[in-house]
């Protein structure tokens, strides 16, 4: 708990930097708008203002500074604007409404979770196969490792459209992408984990003439728990990012990714920012939940590191 104060300080510093940056980032737009509203602006032509920095403009037009915090189409919204938009679209809308962030959140979350479940189960199966079959180990494992360096994420929107044209729509196509993205971290992590018991432990089981299956359930599987949880956390955030990317330039109407795009396309930056933060909070919550399960499980197994 002694980390609470440092964490707050770091977050407070970041927030402070954000709040201060709002002024120079929005100043040019605010100045243009103010001129159209017949307010006094120095210098008084857009061309002259182009050569002045945001900070310079702010210093010369201090009466315009408060306006930078309430501008409707900001380059950089202030924290309270983002919070306001989020509050409006989370609590101020019915959950079933197409403008509710909760609705969009669910559209993104459902395939993320489903895909994650599929990817993790398949990944564990493949990992067991790799550990127990030398052929699979030598032929498949190198590809599993190499595939982590390939930016498959770039294919995500494509997969959606292809499956869509084959009549597969809705939750399933996005789940497939989420499954793929969580699959490989789980395979690599589980293989490491299943192989983690040391020679001494394995020898002990041999003195008991334990079968491979007994060895798996009694030793290898429990030993892999810390590695599995580490991979699960990577996998869930990868699944979420994958689902969001899959919602991108394919005319998707719903989900966090779609909202980010819609806000951008229709000149409503606050919508994009709110969606971005909502996605971030969702990611943090998911990783946090898994972290909590991890701590509780490892503690019961006596493998807690703290």
């Amino acid at each position: 708990m002694k980390s609470v104060l440092p964490i707050f300080s770091v977050i407070a510093a970041i927030l402070l930097f954000w709040v201060v940056s709002v002024v120079p980032m929005n100043m040019h737009l605010v100045a243009d708008q103010a001129q159209r509203d017949d307010l006094v602006v120095t210098p008084d032509t857009p061309t002259a203002r182009q050569n002045v920095s945001g900070i310079g403009l702010a210093l010369r037009n201090t009466h315009l500074i408060p306006l930078t915090y309430t501008f409707v189409r900001p380059n950089l919204p202030s924290p309270h604007q983002v919070a306001g938009e989020m509050y409006k679209t989370i609590f101020g809308q019915k959950i079933t409404s197409k403008r509710s962030l909760v609705y969009h959140g669910w559209v993104t979350l459902a395939p993320t979770l489903l895909g994650f479940l599929i990817g993790t189960s398949l990944g564990i199966f493949l990992a067991v196969g790799i550990v127990y079959s030398r052929v699979m180990d030598l032929s498949v494992m190198p590809w599993a490792i190499v595939s982590q360096t390939i930016p498959i994420l770039a294919l995500a929107p494509m997969v959606i459209v292809v499956l869509g044209s084959m009549g597969v729509q809705g939750v399933l196509p996005k789940s497939i992408i989420a499954a793929y993205l969580s699959f490989f971290p789980v395979v690599v992590g589980m293989v490491k984990g299943l192989r983690s018991p040391d020679a001494m432990q394995l020898d002990l089981l041999r003195t008991y003439s334990a079968s491979k299956s007994q060895g798996f359930w009694a030793l290898r599987l429990p030993s892999s728990a810390p590695y599995l949880f580490a991979s699960l956390k990577i996998g869930i955030s990868a699944s979420l990012v994958g689902t969001i990317v899959a919602e991108l330039p394919t005319g998707a109407r719903a989900g966090f990714g779609a909202r980010m795009l819609v806000g951008d396309q229709y000149g409503q930056p606050l919508v994009s920012w709110a969606a971005l933060f909502a996605a971030a909070i969702t990611a943090a919550a998911l990783v946090g939940i898994f972290g909590f399960i991890e701590k509780a499980t490892l503690k019961r197994m006596g493998m807690a590191t703290t």
Binding site: I11, I244, F256, G257
Partner: peptide, 22 residues
């Protein structure tokens, strides 16, 4: 250090690719 490690780890898990349009 005690402040940055948790905050940095948190930020690393976020879908930063969503900042692209911004």
């Amino acid at each position: 250090t005690r402040g940055i490690l948790p905050v940095g780890g948190f930020m690393a898990a976020l879908p930063i690719v969503g900042t692209a349009p911004i």
